[in-house]
Design a protein around this nucleic acid. Structure first.
Lengths: 362, 362
DNA sequence: TTGTAAGCGTTATCAA
DNA sequence: TTGATAACGCTTACAA
């Protein structure tokens, strides 16, 4: 153990970071390409195997067309040398890369992180890389991101949302690669869709509050996109059920849990016992829930709150918060599967679907 | 407003997704490349400008070397046509791409999301793309990820951590591109470092608890890597201050807030009034904090808890949780700046530093 | 300041 | 089943 200085913020103490000597086989990576020697290309592999470069290429991309003997010889050499083909050369020749670009609305929300993690795992196993871009619910960022696609020539493009701007829809179609939208359920997706019915979320929430004997209800959510869709379903259904929609609070930008707390602090003065709240945003819902609990010891009666989010994550996080939600990992999984099918030329329905579900803790 | 089916989960209702007609200029993207016509290359641009391809290339990469007149003519045409150079051809020729690969330990933790968002913004503005890979604190994933780098030929590689495996350190050095480690403060980074002193985190936490008159303290954190470094600093300093380290709880894998709650439920039976807890993981700290609040109304006295995480995020999320932490956005910002400087050939110190800070809510 | 020629590492095409 | 050749779009090296 090395000595530690009694440093402070101005002179930090070094960390004794663990060093793990070369692993014992189980962890060993594919053989490095000979200790810093220059990049081995397909030409060298071909020479070593005594075949032409195109045969090496075929052995890797199209093994069936190469004789058993040649193929095993080539693959052995590839294995030994750790040869990896140059994706830029490949992309240049075939006209597109093996990169799948994903535009994510936000990384703070666990919904999208969970979906992207799953999606990335599946695509990676199939030899694609997931390149993530953050749109932060901003049109200019979306436009900029889409404009870069022409250059990147991705194998496919994925959105945790649907595209509203007609010019972007057109630009995406013109790319000529698979486009997958998700997290909403429009009638006319650009290309492929993992649908999720936001309108139904609002409906489920209204029914839930009605079932809890609420008479007056509030909606809280994002101002645009999916937030509005959930709000419509909520308002329509509330009206049909005879609930009074007392207030609709729409936020432009949601960064953290604290905003939920602030909203609730504003709201609580006007809340009566048995009022219902549907908070259609996961981050806000956590904040509101926590604020309700903080103030619950006081005299004022608690409202009935129903939140929103990834069911797996939210149910573990806050066992006592009922919510309308979905299985985000499933969205990621379906998205990856649809993209791979399309890239492999398999026929499939271009719309799949992940349901809105009501989660109620026991 | 279109009609809504009274669907249920089995037959979802369509969402009335908003469609925004072509924007009025302010939002319009760079001119598309002529309605689905085939890709315009540098050759076409050169022909249109009446110059050679290399001149177009120079006008874009090295404008100073091209005459004012030629340059403006070329740039006009580029503008009009929306020409974007093919990064694969470029990468093939120059030997590396404009992709910066970032390996992120986890996306659930806001620390890393915040840092990556900032980093991505800066790199993007400089013409690089940030490709994110998830290591999930797993050596095999890290090894696989690093093995793909040889093929991708990134402009630089970034880690939200430091590399422990010697074989990986060697493989990274052999790539010959800038490598940036972060979130720890080792003496011997591979190449560049945005240091963060984890040992000091533990020390700050121990001092804080000592200052709160705790006699017995607990440590909770991750079993490996940075968690252990914080634990060392905590244990060493606690001993020096005469605190009894009653228990050290190390977790292998931390997925969500719920695990913090479970731990605290286990722990609380043995807690006495005035005991101190340092929870050196942001996700766990949120869960423990919330669980302490939930059970605080009961008779048992609350322990003193100090958490860990991004100060901006955690302080807004839970105003009442004191913590040891850092400014994650600053890590992302410094990382991006160092990478860009290195890529541009500017001299700079290869280690920079983000301090561990104590945050205590008023 | 501009241009010519060559080549980056693959794979499509056609021929054997 | 295998190979020769050309081409993908760009930029380096050298020449004018």
């Amino acid at each position: 153990v090395s000595q530690k200085r009694t440093g402070n913020a101005a002179s930090p103490t070094y960390d004794d970071v663990r060093r793990i000597p070369d692993p014992d086989g189980s962890l060993r990576p594919a053989q490095g390409q000979g200790d810093g020697k220059r990049y081995l290309g397909i030409v060298e592999i071909a020479r070593m195997a005594g075949v032409s470069t195109i045969t090496v290429s075929r052995a890797l991309r199209n093994p069936d067309v190469v004789s058993e003997k040649t193929r095993t010889k080539i693959l052995d050499i590839v294995q030994q040398t750790g040869y990896v083909s140059n994706p830029h050369a490949r992309a240049l020749r075939v006209g597109h890369s093996t990169i799948v670009v994903a535009f994510v609305s936000s990384m703070i929300s666990p919904q999208f992180s969970i979906a992207m993690q799953k999606c990335s795992d599946i695509l990676e196993a199939a030899g694609y890389q997931l390149l993530m871009g953050l749109t932060s619910y901003s049109y200019p960022k979306e436009i900029f991101g889409i404009s870069t696609l022409k250059a990147i020539k991705p194998a496919a493009v994925l959105f945790t949302g649907v595209i509203e701007l007609e010019s972007n829809r057109r630009a995406l179609r013109e790319l000529g690669v698979p486009i997958l939208e998700s997290w909403a359920y429009p009638r006319d997706p650009i290309d492929m869709l993992v649908g999720f019915p936001n309108y139904d979320c609002g409906r489920l929430a209204a029914r839930y509050l009605h079932g809890k004997d609420c008479k007056r209800v509030y909606f809280i959510g994002r101002q645009s996109g999916r937030g509005m869709l959930r709000q419509q379903g909520f308002t329509d259904t509330a009206a049909a059920l005879g609930l009074e929609v007392k207030d609709t609070i729409l936020l432009k930008d949601i960064q953290n849990i604290y905003e939920g707390k602030k909203i609730y602090q504003h709201l609580k003065a006007s809340l009566k016992s048995g009022d219902g709240i549907f908070c259609a945003n996961d981050i806000l819902a956590l904040g509101i829930h926590s604020e309700i609990k903080d103030t619950s010891a006081q005299r004022r009666a608690q409202p009935v709150l129903i939140g929103f989010g990834d069911i797996g994550y939210m149910s573990r996080t806050e066992p006592r918060l009922p919510l309308v939600g979905m299985d985000s990992a499933l969205v990621g999984e379906k998205a990856a599967a649809m993209i791979l099918n399309k890239l492999r030329g398999k026929k499939q329905p271009c719309i799949s679907y992940v349901p809105a579900e009501l989660y109620e803790p026991r």
